[in-house]
């Protein structure tokens, strides 16, 4: 499938008009220049409801070129509704090549996960963000949270973590776990599991965050320090799993619980479907898995 003008007649390339894309790119550049800082932008209406990734879609649309290869994941999976519809959206409006292979993609748009495979310098990870303000639930006033960011007054963030320990004996926050970017701005990493937090640190890929409803864009430039907040006597610990993936036997990936019957049967499998498939293709087999032959890139 080639990107010719005929394929997306009626639309500009990647749906948004060039003026809008320039506006978004300016916001992205500013966000890269000030790592972790939330840049306001004039979020547009998209042909999908808020909460379906309108922020991420606008960021992707603004940076997408005809030669890019796009991967879209939702909770790590390439084949869920949200991932499929966004992938189709860009196939239709930009005519770009898409993939499920993490290594092959130049742009990966994600909802709530970072792929297991280490991202490389040429890649861009675009996060869909529902609530960009990490201080929101503690301080409802936007004027006040902005001042707190401006003055790096982040004591309140630790109050949240304190409350967790007081209530649960440990920091119970398992996703959207706040981080300090480049020793300056505290940032919400979007609802990725805290398992993924260490992957943001010194990542080779450019990480962009888009919040459509809240009209904010922020970024972590490649090779930037990203530290998860914690206490000296309650250090940050990524989630650990006690059992391996039931399908591929991986011990180091993030697992989803899958209910297999209505009698309490369940299994834990990799949330990153591509990671799981490629391991199985390499011959790894989990307790409930069966060996498979390598999948070739699905032709559209």
């Amino acid at each position: 499938m080639s990107a010719t003008a005929e394929n997306y007649r009626g639309y500009n390339f990647a749906y948004l008009d060039e003026q809008t894309k320039r506006m978004i790119r300016r916001a992205i550049l500013k966000a890269i220049a000030i790592p972790g800082y939330q840049v306001p932008f004039a979020s547009r209406e998209m042909p999908m409801p808020y909460g379906w990734g309108t922020g991420g879609v606008q960021v992707t649309a603004a940076i997408l070129g005809p030669d890019d290869i796009l991967k879209v994941i939702d909770q790590g999976a390439d084949d869920t509704t949200n991932a499929v519809s966004i992938r189709q959206f860009f196939e239709k409006t930009a005519g770009v090549q898409t993939t499920t292979e993490t290594g092959k993609a130049t742009i990966i748009q994600t909802r709530h996960r970072i792929p297991e495979a280490t991202l490389q310098d040429h890649q861009v990870l675009v996060y869909q963000v529902p609530i960009p303000e990490p201080l929101r639930f503690l301080e409802p006033r936007e004027t006040e949270t902005r001042t707190m960011h401006a003055l790096a007054e982040y004591g309140l963030m630790h109050v949240k973590l304190y409350e967790d320990i007081a209530q649960h004996g440990h920091i119970a926050k398992t996703y959207d776990y706040p981080v300090l970017v480049a020793e300056r701005y505290v940032m919400a990493p979007s609802p990725i599991p805290k398992f993924d937090n260490p992957k943001m640190h010194q990542s080779g890929a450019l990480q962009l965050f888009g919040a459509g409803r809240e009209k904010r864009i922020y970024a972590i430039p490649p090779h930037t320090e990203v530290v998860s907040l914690d206490f000296e006597d309650h250090p940050f610990e990524p989630t650990k799993f006690t059992e391996p993936c039931a399908l591929c036997g991986a011990l180091d990936s993030y697992l989803d619980e899958v209910i297999t019957d209505d009698k309490g049967g369940r299994m834990f499998v990799c949330s990153d479907t591509h990671h799981c498939e490629s391991r199985r293709a390499e011959g790894h087999v989990g307790a409930l898995g069966t060996p498979i032959t390598p999948v070739t890139e699905a032709a559209e």
Binding site: H158, V159, D233
Partner: peptide, 10 residues
């Protein structure tokens, strides 16, 4: 206030 001035020991 303690956390605000950088105390990080729960």
């Amino acid at each position: 206030r303690l956390m605000g001035i950088g105390d990080r020991h729960y």
